[in-house]
Design a protein around this nucleic acid. Sequence first.
DNA 1: AAAGTTCTTCCACTGGATGGAAGGAGTCTC
DNA 2: GAGACTCCTTCCATCCAGTGGAAGAACTTT
Lengths: 249, 249
Amino acid sequence: MGATVTSRALDILGAFDGEHRSLSLTELARRAGLPLATAHRLVGELQRWGALAREPGGEYVIGRRIWQLGLLAPVQSGLRQAASPFLHDLYGTTLATVHLAVRDALEVLYVERLAGHVSVPVVSRVGSRLPMHATGVGKVLLAYAPEEVRLEVLQNLTRITAYTVTQPARLLEQLRRVRAEGYATTGEEMSLGACSVAVPVRNGDTVVAALGMVVPDLRRQLPRLVSALQVAAHGISRTLAGPASVQWK
Amino acid sequence: MGATVTSRALDILGAFDGEHRSLSLTELARRAGLPLATAHRLVGELQRWGALAREPGGEYVIGRRIWQLGLLAPVQSGLRQAASPFLHDLYGTTLATVHLAVRDALEVLYVERLAGHVSVPVVSRVGSRLPMHATGVGKVLLAYAPEEVRLEVLQNLTRITAYTVTQPARLLEQLRRVRAEGYATTGEEMSLGACSVAVPVRNGDTVVAALGMVVPDLRRQLPRLVSALQVAAHGISRTLAGPASVQWK
DNA sequence: AAAGTTCTTCCACTGGATGGAAGGAGTCTC
DNA sequence: GAGACTCCTTCCATCCAGTGGAAGAACTTT
């Protein structure tokens, strides 16, 4: 094998995801790729600490202590909190689905999402990951990502809908325009019936997040949406750079 | 020593808290009680997995992966989501600080909190823990906790303000009344200038959480607040019991 | 009651974990 | 600008915590 103990414990935690919020010991062992006895021992220890909890039915779920720890992550305590009021304003004035996302390795990680009943059905959830090349926020983040990230992503442009951009050259051209014009758009590239616009959120000079909206149709209202997004993005940037908040250092 | 590898890895994670969101390797090792070399190795592994992240300055913070995992905890995905709209309604009609909390071992764990600018300054934050005997939500949770929990808590009634109830007999009497009347109150027992009311939130027959509000003065408006809280609590209960939501099993 | 599950415990062997020590890489001090 | 800091990284011989097959307990199903 050659697996460290820590990596095994982490594999157990990694066995949980949006589709698997509660797992029996056996499932957990199988998904983590560990022998039952080993999983049993590790799971016991994780549970005692509070990383996992056991439901009445005997199944394991993520524990409160992990939830609590997660609240300390900078995504949550810095970015998310700084952005929250601006997202609400945006949502209030447009009533479209609003997204805040960061780049995590080669994917988009959704940090916050506001969606009304009215709005277009969207795939993303808070905490979920999507490919960068097919989402508005993803294109923004990719446009400002380090060269090597961009190259790697361009090598693997998987098709999701008929409109997904899968030619590296075409995407590169789009990214160039994102940098030039300050916003990105998509048209049914991730899911049919959904278009999106997104703009960068900066902290100082570096782009730290992207702010986007999803609407059924862009054509008519693009300029209006872009400026609304930019106002909000600037607000977030100012808050981030601002009075070092309460929670920095 | 006799510490398992897993426990050491967890000690590292446990070194982070609300007052220590970012730690240098040395601090981390000291707080976790580990030799530097050991901490270094474990921290590296945690970072590679995404449990920790490294800031530009070289300090470690909780990583996005932990944040993401935390979103899967039942506290978050079941209770918190079910309660959210009702909390907003409550807040909207009263403009007081609103709290949702659960019992975690012998303490109150705050799951959600809405506070306006207007409201009384309060100690609690989302994810923080406070003693049960000095908070409204705590008294509710204690009143419905298993006998053994109650006994243990009663043995250690630390004084926080001049008004904190520290006599076991007096607290027991209060808890009896909580069960009889369906709500609990506090008057400056946790922090001066703040009073609170709280009611239980049930899932079926069992009390799973407490819903509370903090106000500068109770006298005049108690009945009004209690009924508002109860309406909201019932709503939450119904949602919890309800259509098994999207996210159960 | 027999044949399934899934979970828990045990224990002799072994390879991953350990941590003191030495060596970088900055930063401050006089 | 040499010396004294602090903080981080790497190395490796020793050893103890981790391992996981197997047996058995606790259920459920047939």
